[in-house]
Design a protein around this nucleic acid. Structure first.
Length: 919
RNA sequence: GGGCGAUUAGCUCAGCUGGUUUAGAGCAUCUGCUUUACGAGCAGAGGGUCAGAGGUUCAAAUCCUCUAUCGCCCACCA
């Protein structure tokens, strides 16, 4: 085997390593920022990667997300745009801290044993050792990121950006600190944002409890029969899903217009177990329809109760420790875990005769999105971003058409969220992350009893002393910021913000954002707000939301569910190109994966490889390949003109699809073109010419096949970068104009020309005739179970001379493709019993069988065909008989129906005539 | 409780703004094949009243309404 040949089998592993390291080392993914204006800003194409977590390992969701981005990036790079794909990794505060804490736990240590400083060193160490797993894996996928611009949300520059953003917002009055009910994860022991509290339906209980009315002797009127259970002589019944929180109750509430309880308002009840008197208040919030119409009010442990508590100036009693155990405010229950406390509270209520019943109750409960622990609404002091003003800007930008969502239905989701936006709790009680750039001066804090910010210093640079009193002993807020507080700056922080770098000037705003629906709120919406707030410009023009990857079972694919397919295993086994192509083809909507689904891509790589082998084998004596075709088109064979015409159609279809994020449609367009048109027909039609001794004809076909394959590889390259490059390089060796060729396919130009120089409807029509003739004969041979070795001869009859001449011109090829000994062409043909036939509207094919066929079978076949034709004719006739149709449908359509009718009738007549012979 | 998506051949899915589609593809099934690249292949075949019911229209898988089943997202009803 000479070096210009392709091996019998495609070696994906070797190829992938070879080309990826070449591309990367040559800096092909590294655009320069061109602020000189040598190029138009319109010719930029920029994507920032959704930064995977440092703790992440590549899963199928990443594989899909990054394959899509890489296709868009490579496509744009080939189109000659200044194309930048900014990669990077997210520090993933809670997730990463959890990982390191788990590691410590194995050594029976906690983070508190180490202390903050030493713990953070541990995390950094972990990051150095394991943090580049995901970026290595992205390279294996083929992701053509500019690694020289790789960022980490905790690196120096991004940390600066975070401080800048925080302090700017603080100065604009958009950041505040306050005591509010937030979502608290007792396991992670930190606050969470609303978005981080994943609501899940849980089968819980609705506990009915009696609260005695204070001041015995006061009679409670029996309202109606049937209400007895709700309003007794000396108590009120209420319902709760979390009985243990009663320890912190500071009121009981009813609806102001609820007649059942009017008389109770203003009275007091005795909080059982705590033996505390609490008031009965009225509040519109209470739904008389729910439960008994009476609500216990726990301002420190329920968001609604908190608000209600503020309206009525109720005390807030926090009964929980940060770890979810009951604190000293919980009386006898101190120290118990919240769920244990629930049991005990219920038992004790039962013992006192105050427990009525537990109904089972389905309700949504928040769970920590990191560790899935049930969240507690918890009153604590946290930092918040006032989101309304930011959301207003984002809404305005949307209505100005600044950012568009694809598919469009996501805009509604996005807008709804913005319209109902709530403040963002950004402080986290963990250590791994950006520590809040706020310092306290304790002496000043003590002095300022009013609500001024005295003693609180938010600063970009660590302050040396208090600006008011000069105290040098400042204490930084121990909390860190929500991870998303750095992610929301990603599109510009990665480009150098807050510095006005060349990159920022040239590449911001970016072009597209490609991501999954899960993080529209977490990330996409916030990035848009941040972009508008800090740079007065939307961070990207278009947002492409692709489908979710699921296991075949329909569940989300995840390692913890054990239903994950490891993309690296697939790459190992079938190659990155196979993985990418399979996923993209399936990605028209949510992707349900199973192992077998990757076979499409694998088979396709195999097909491409072998077709290319064939081409290269037939170019042994050839070195006249060119980037552009230097042939007189009119002198090319029909097959050549046809494939060129199809190539052009497909190129522009792919171009159009890609422009609209129709990657799946584009990939399947290419798949069918390569497989069905190029391999099944064009290569087959070329074989006799390539084998012929007629040098000029052979050379012309060599040129065309070379040209078409080269274009195919370019079209395929964004989807399948490795195999296309490997073959392309071999092809390049056959070119006579190599000096015009780029060093790598990834820098070749995208083959889309506006001038339709190859468009050729005549060739397409002629080839269609040829294909039908061949298929018609093949069908007969198989249908009649004629032995393959049986020599056959055929007759093709048509009253259209153009058809006859097309077939005449390609006699040799038809003989090979249909495996005929020979055939005659006739303007008309008298059928005899010695023939079987297939009829088309414009011609008939006959095969001489000389009694080889069973007349009964043949009759059956013909009757079936006749029935088919009749039902078709019937359908068309009914349509044409409808006066509404002929009157209202466009004339061209009616005309078409008439033609269809004539065609169908011809087919019918042919079959009928033939059937008669076999009667 | 709201919103969104799905429902098309045994399986997995295309079918975008109604009319060249007699509703397609891939896998699976069946038949045949050492045809000078590919059996991960080649050549054929069978298989669907497009979830159901209404409606709009000359014309509906495609647009509208309702229903059913499945899935996702959002939501402070204790």
């Amino acid at each position: 085997m000479s070096s210009e040949d392709l091996a019998t089998k495609y070696n994906s592993k070797e190829t992938e390593v070879k080309w990826y390291s070449y591309w990367e080392s040559q800096g092909y993914f590294h655009p320069k920022s061109d602020t000189e204006g040598k190029r138009f800003r319109d010719s930029r194409y920029v994507i920032v990667i959704p930064p995977p977590n440092v703790t992440g390992i590549l899963h199928m969701g990443h594989a899909l997300n990054n394959s899509i981005q890489d296709i868009l990036i490579r496509w744009n790079r080939m189109k000659g745009n200044d194309t930048l794909w900014v990669p990077g990794v997210d520090h993933a505060g809670i997730a990463t801290q959890n990982v390191v804490e788990r590691k410590l736990a194995k050594e029976k240590k906690t983070r508190y044993d180490l202390g903050r400083e030493a713990f953070l060193q541990e995390v950094w160490k972990w990051k150095e050792e394991h943090g580049n797993t995901i970026t290595r894996q992205l390279r294996r996928l083929g992701a053509s990121c500019d690694w020289s611009r790789e960022r980490f949300t905790m690196d120096e520059g991004l940390s600066r950006a975070v401080r800048e953003a925080f302090v700017t917002l603080y100065e604009r009055g958009l950041i505040y600190q306050g005591h509010y009910i937030i979502n608290w994860c007792p396991r992670c022991q930190t606050a969470l944002s609303d978005e981080e509290a994943a609501h899940k339906e849980v089968e819980g209980g609705l506990y009915h409890i009696k609260y005695p009315i204070a001041g015995k002797g006061r009679q409670v009127r029996q309202t109606e029969v049937g209400q007895a259970e709700k309003v007794g002589e000396d108590h009120v019944v209420l319902a709760t899903t979390r009985p243990e929180t009663m320890l912190g109750d500071t009121a009981v509430a009813v609806h102001p217009r609820d007649p059942r309880y009017r008389h109770l308002v203003g009275k007091k009840v005795i909080l059982p177990l705590m033996e505390r008197e609490i008031p009965v208040i009225e509040d519109e919030f209470v739904d008389p329809e729910f439960g008994t119409g009476v609500v216990k009010v726990t301002p420190a442990h329920d968001p609604n109760d908190f608000v209600m508590g503020q309206r009525h100036q109720l005390a807030q009693i926090n009964i929980l420790n940060p770890d979810g155990t009951i604190n000293q405010n919980g009386g006898a229950y101190v120290g118990l875990d919240r769920f244990e406390a629930r049991k005990r509270v219920v038992e004790d209520l039962k013992a006192r005769g105050l427990f009525i019943r537990r109904d089972s109750h389905l309700h949504a409960v928040g769970h920590c999105y990191r560790c899935n622990t049930m969240i507690e609404p918890y009153l604590s002091k946290q930092w918040f971003v006032r989101m309304r003003p930011l959301a207003e800007k984002a809404l305005a930008a949307y209505y100005q058409g600044k950012t568009k969502f694809y598919p469009d239905r996501w805009t509604k989701v996005y807008l709804n969220w913005l319209e109902g936006i709530r403040d963002w709790c950004i402080s986290r009680q963990i250590w791994w992350g950006h520590q809040i750039p706020v310092w306290y001066c304790d002496p000043c804090l003590e002095i300022s009893s009013d609500k001024k910010k005295q003693g609180i210093i938010a600063a970009r640079e660590t302050p040396a002393q208090c600006p008011d009193c000069g105290n040098k002993n400042l204490r930084q807020d121990p909390d860190v910021l929500d991870t998303w507080f750095s992610s929301w700056l990603w599109p510009f922080s990665t480009l150098g913000w807050p510095d006005a770098t060349d990159d920022l000037k040239y590449f911001y705003p970016t072009s597209d954002l490609v991501t999954a629906p899960e993080i529209i709120f977490f990330w996409v919406a916030r990035m848009i707000m941040a972009g508008l707030e800090f740079l007065q410009e939307v961070p990207f023009r278009r947002v492409y939301i692709h489908g979710t990857v699921r296991a075949q079972s329909g569940f989300k694919m995840s390692k913890s569910l054990g239903n994950a397919i490891d993309p690296l295993e697939v790459i190992e086994e079938m190659g990155a190109d196979a993985l990418r192509f399979s996923m993209i083809m399936l990605s028209a909507q949510d992707v349900y994966l199973s192992r077998e689904k990757f076979e499409v891509g694998r088979n396709f790589t195999n097909k491409i490889w072998n077709a290319s082998r064939f081409v290269l084998m037939n170019l042994k004596d050839f070195s006249g390949g060119r980037l552009d075709l230097d042939l007189d088109l009119s002198k090319l064979s029909l097959a050549d003109r046809w494939i060129l015409s199809r190539l052009e159609q497909v190129s522009s279809a792919v171009e159009n699809q890609l422009g609209d994020f129709g990657l799946s449609q584009a990939s399947s367009e290419l798949y069918h073109f390569v497989w069905n048109d190029f391999c099944d027909w064009y290569i087959e039609l070329s074989k006799p010419i390539l084998a012929s001794v007629e040098k000029s004809k052979k050379e012309a076909t060599q040129k065309v096949i070379f040209f078409v394959l080269e274009r195919i590889l370019r079209l395929l390259h964004p989807f399948m970068p490795f195999i296309s490059e490997e073959i392309w390089q071999k092809l390049k060796a056959k070119a006579c104009d190599q000096n015009l060729w780029p060093l790598t396919l990834s820098l070749a130009s995208w083959p889309h020309e506006k001038a339709k120089r190859f468009e050729n409807p005549e060739a397409q029509k002629a080839l269609d005739i040829l294909q039908r003739a061949v298929k018609g004969i093949r069908d007969l041979r198989l249908r009649l179970q004629l032995p393959p070795t049986q020599k056959l001869s055929a007759v093709i009859a048509s009253d259209q001379s153009e058809i006859l001449s097309v077939l005449k011109d390609h006699e040799g090829q038809i003989k090979i493709l249909a495996r005929l000994e020979g055939f005659d062409l006739k303007p008309s043909f008298e059928k005899t019993k010695a023939f079987v036939a297939n009829a088309f509207s414009d011609f008939e094919v006959f095969i001489r069988i000389e009694g080889l066929v069973d007349p009964v079978k043949e009759r059956g076949r013909l009757e079936h065909k006749i029935a088919e034709a009749r039902s078709r004719i019937d359908l068309i006739q009914r349509k044409l008989a409808d006066p509404d149709f002929t009157a209202k449908a466009p004339e061209s359509l009616v005309q078409k129906e008439r033609e269809k009718l004539v065609d169908a009738q011809r087919v019918l007549k042919s079959h009928e005539a033939h059937l008669e012979l076999f009667q």
